[in-house]
């Protein structure tokens, strides 16, 4: 949030664009207000894809292309690079469309221009956050059995269908998945201390509530359902005694509207700068001090 008065866009030749790794639920809603009309479609997408549509209008003509672009950039950032042409050939096979060489080349150029738009949208922020890696490490630390670890891993995979990755750091999601797996098997989860993992109970609760919402309302669309078809009622049972637990605190809307971060991204400004936002303080301030 900024209180300095800035010159109007018309006179600007240069602007600053921050990268922020985590947003709260209301911040996400606030950003999406201008971009998405259909929330359910978004639930199947992954992080870049979700970040793209925080700031760009959602449109059924383009979501497939954005998914391809997200995969393309992710393949670079994860050091598992693929030629764009190869990705497109597979993508077209899946979609059952046939393209001539010339059409394929045109399509390739279109994705390349979308690539720069997506990179600008994420403010060239290449920091990676993976739930599964931490989940395995934390499970080992807590001496969780392999079966339970596997169950938690399935939950973690489904978590990408929610907005959790936009909201909270991966260790909170990991711990929420482990907690939920323990609860599903009626085991005790008292040994988990959030402060051991640089996180807070509120942030874990936030993840728990979102995961429960996903499994209670959209069970048939989850990966878990394909392996354990009969867990849905168990999630309802787990949710009932959790009526009074709190997730993360939300910012007041009046604060959000003053925050430049949500301004329309103006790609016509000649010079656009990218910085990583310094937002960790918010997360650390919620960790209880010893």
């Amino acid at each position: 949030m900024t209180s300095v008065s800035r010159p109007s866009t018309a006179q600007l030749t240069s602007t600053i664009q921050l990268a922020r790794p985590f947003l709260t639920k209301s911040q996400i809603k606030h950003a999406q207000k201008k971009t998405i009309e259909n929330f359910t479609t978004l639930e199947t997408a992954m992080i870049y894809y979700q970040r793209y549509f925080l700031f760009n209008k959602f449109d059924t003509n383009i979501y497939y292309d954005i998914a391809i672009t997200s995969i393309f950039i992710a393949s670079k950032n994860e050091d598992t690079i693929k030629k764009l042409r190869d990705i497109l050939i597979i993508a077209n096979q899946i979609k059952n469309t046939f393209l001539t060489q010339d059409q394929l080349e045109l399509y390739r150029r279109k994705i390349l221009s979308l690539e720069s738009k997506l990179l600008e949208t994420i403010s060239f922020d290449f920091r990676l956050f993976h739930v599964e890696e931490l989940l395995i490490k934390i499970s080992k630390t807590l001496k969780i059995s392999k079966d339970l670890g596997y169950l938690a891993w399935l939950l973690a995979y489904d978590s990408y269908q929610t907005e959790l990755a936009l909201k909270i750091p991966p260790q909170s999601i990991s711990i929420a998945c482990i907690t939920l797996a323990l609860k599903l098997k009626d085991e005790n989860c008292d040994q988990i201390r959030p402060e051991d993992f640089h996180t807070s109970q509120n942030s874990i609760n936030e993840a728990l509530l979102d995961l429960l919402e996903l499994y209670i309302n959209s069970y048939n669309y989850t990966n878990l359902a394909s392996i354990y078809p009969d867990y849905q009622n168990k999630f309802v049972e787990i949710r009932i005694p959790m009526e009074d637990i709190n997730g993360l605190k939300e910012q007041d809307v009046s604060v959000l509207t003053k925050d430049d971060y949500y301004n329309d991204r103006d790609f016509s400004i000649g010079e656009r700068r990218y910085m990583l936002g310094n937002q960790r303080k918010r997360l650390y301030s919620e960790i209880p001090k010893n």
Binding site: M1, V4, S14, I16, K249, E250, D260, N278, R282
Partner: peptide
């Protein structure tokens, strides 16, 4: 607590 305190750095020109 939820406020982000980072002021944008002045826009630099080169």
């Amino acid at each position: 607590m939820l406020e982000t305190k980072n002021k944008p750095a002045p826009v630099q020109r080169y």
